[in-house]
Design a protein around this nucleic acid. Structure first.
Lengths: 223, 223
DNA sequence: GAACTTTCGGGACGTCCGTACCACAACTAG
DNA sequence: CTAGTTGTGGTACGGACGTCCCGAAAGTTC
């Protein structure tokens, strides 16, 4: 819920004292909370209206704060988008992490992936589109591009422990991206069953290999 | 070059006469040309500044036409985006068609795909981003979504004659989409070689199968 | 208490936007 | 020729926008 922003206190002036930790300033605490409200409202706004709908006034209304609060915490609209992208990346990684964590060792990876994609393109379609829109926005802003790239790397890192090797993790993420964007472009989101044939082929790099590595991993876990 | 718009004459009033073909109205011809200029300028604008940069005034300046010309041919900005998306989809399909046509029967599909993706994410990066942005814009506009979905189907149709079967074509397009979006999100576009391992695994559905079908196809071509 | 920092919030400025209007030119049809 | 249609383009209007400013309030430190 709370924003774990990487930007920190940038618009604030400067630390008052030296290196001693500021005990606890109630003002800053409430300020951070409000900042989180604004970021969350921004994400909600992107979900309903796209990145184009992100304006100071709209964000202020959605967050229930006065107009000046948005310019106080985010000097420019780009800063606000940076914060939103960071937050969205974190949420997305959490989603994938939860999915990866619920994988059972013996199950078919393609089936699990299709279920994830179907969910992201169906019930959670709006949030997914918001994430992709933020990625697109990042392509045009050199400052945001590393963040978006790190997003992909984060996904790879999240699924890596559940895969046989590094390459398999990258293959899975690539297949995930390909399936997801096509599912998002469909007039009505495809079911997991409909995507399964494609996903199976995408992830079937000779099933023998995969099964052997899987068994090796399980053996290592038990031994 | 010329716009093959599906919208036709919508902002014009109505046909003057009955069903007889209008012989040749020089005004309409020049009007269509100007319309094409405007669409092309819009695409150029999207390449450099994104969909957000599409404004009547900016388009007019880029196309070298007065402001009123843009509102004359496209009643609203959305109409202009529809035309741009249609045009972009056509160009994209032409690119893929050219690529598919240059495939040699025995060559490695993964290598060819990586070269295509490297080109689209490297030298032609801006145009590719423009296409994806238009797709994203389509996700929010019910009127445009079928067009974007048709785009994906078009890609499948284009590569289908070069593939063993229907499923292979869909797999290829999905891998293409996944690789491309990740390549676009990289800070510097990856080389074809760097993507090759992932692409190879994505397209390797048991190499035996593929080789057998390929040989069958070649035999059918020669016999 | 005083002095200071931080947050708050109303308001205003200049700019750019979409769109509409309208007189006029180019052209065709009769 | 006249009448009618179609393209042209300068201009203007109401509104929304990003951003800045500055006084007030809340809170902290001494």
């Amino acid at each position: 819920m709370t924003t774990v922003s990487a930007v920190g206190a940038d618009s604030a002036g400067g630390d008052s004292g030296g290196e001693s930790g500021v005990a606890f300033d109630g003002r800053r605490a409430r300020g951070a909370a409000r900042r989180g409200q604004i970021v969350e409202a921004t994400l909600r706004l992107i979900e309903t209206g796209g990145v184009a709908a992100v304006r100071h006034r709209a964000v202020a209304t959605a967050a229930g704060v006065p107009l000046a609060a948005t310019t106080y915490y985010f000097a420019t609209l780009d800063d606000l988008l940076v914060a939103a992208l960071t937050e969205a990346a974190g949420r997305s990684a959490a989603t994938i992490r939860a999915w990866a964590g619920s994988l059972v060792p013996g199950a078919d990876m393609a089936v699990a992936l299709c279920e994830l994609v179907a969910r992201l393109a169906g019930p959670e379609r709006r949030a997914t589109i918001a994430e992709y829109e933020l990625c697109m926005a990042a392509m045009r802003r050199p400052a945001l591009l590393p963040l978006a790239e790190g997003w992909v790397e984060l996904l790879v890192d999240v699924v890596r422990p559940h895969m046989a090797d590094d390459l398999s993790a990258r293959v899975l993420v690539a297949a995930f991206d390909g399936l997801l964007i096509e599912a998002l472009l469909a007039v009505e989101p495809p079911t997991a069953e409909r995507m399964l044939p494609v996903a199976t082929r995408l992830l079937a790099h000779g099933e023998k290999n995969a099964r052997r590595t899987r068994q090796r991993r399980e053996a290592a876990r038990q031994g």
